[in-house]
Computed example of a mutant assay.
Amino acid sequence: MMATTHALVGLAVAALVSLVVPEFGVAVAAAGLAGGVFPDLDLYAGHRRTLHFPVYYGAAAAVAAVVAVVSPTAWTVAAAVFLAAAALHAGSDALGGGLELEPWEGTSERAVYSHFHGRWLPPRRLVRYDGAPEDLAIAAVFGVPAALAFGPNVQQVAAAALVVSAGYVVVRKRLPAVATWLFAQVPSSVRRHVPERFAP
């Protein structure tokens, strides 16, 4: 799924938490958005493996939630929301397509790496590929109601994420050709630093 979809799902987690602790609204909104995006910071370095922990994020989120209940501060609650959003991101990547450059082809059996199980989890392809129309639908279904739980600043961030998502959906299937062309333009000394899945 798109990073923006993951961010808006994280915002939905934050919206639920803000119903209980509205005084921490801004902190949990930021934590939900950041936690939803965080695992994808490994995009160019072992994507869906380096920062994706579908089991361990969930365990850490459970511990953080207990700490937040016992000692509710902006930091403890935000930490729990961040970890819960990251856990949802890593886990939900298994519901999408594989890691190939053109995931709609369905040639990869690697969706997300589970360090707990010591293996790659296969793609379920419920969301066929990142940037598929159903990906945008999920972003809207989670993002719009979640944004309404917060003020104008968060709503603007959510709206921007949806606009970016819609644009990405429009161009998604053209991106592999662009990536292939760009790869051909870079010097060979640089090519070895390009992740294998971006090479033609």
Rank of each mutant, 00 (worst) to 15 (best):
A74S: 15
G91F: 11
F53Q: 06
P72E: 08
L19Y: 09
T73D: 01
G91V: 04
F142I: 05
V67S: 08
T107V: 15
E102D: 04
G96E: 02
G25I: 07
A184E: 15
G151S: 14
E196W: 09
A140L: 13
Q185P: 00
V17Y: 04
L126H: 11
G46A: 08
S71Y: 13
A84T: 14
R128V: 11
G143D: 02
A31Y: 11
W104K: 01
V13R: 03
V170K: 04
H52Q: 03
A159E: 05
N153F: 14
V157A: 14
V112C: 08
F82W: 09
L83W: 04
I138R: 06
G143C: 03
A29C: 12
V194R: 04
L95S: 10
A137K: 11
V163D: 07
R128W: 11
S189L: 15
P54Q: 04
A64V: 06
G106I: 08
H115W: 15
V163T: 05
V186F: 13
A31G: 06
A78W: 09
A60S: 10
P54E: 08
L101E: 01
V170M: 02
Y113V: 04
A14P: 00
A78P: 06
A90S: 15
A65M: 11
L148W: 10
T180W: 11
P152A: 15
T73N: 05
L33W: 14
V186Q: 08
A12F: 13
S108Y: 01
Q155M: 09
F24K: 03
A3T: 14
W104Y: 09
S108V: 02
V194F: 03
G97T: 04
V77A: 06
A158T: 01
A78M: 07
V20P: 00
A158M: 03
R197Y: 13
P22W: 12
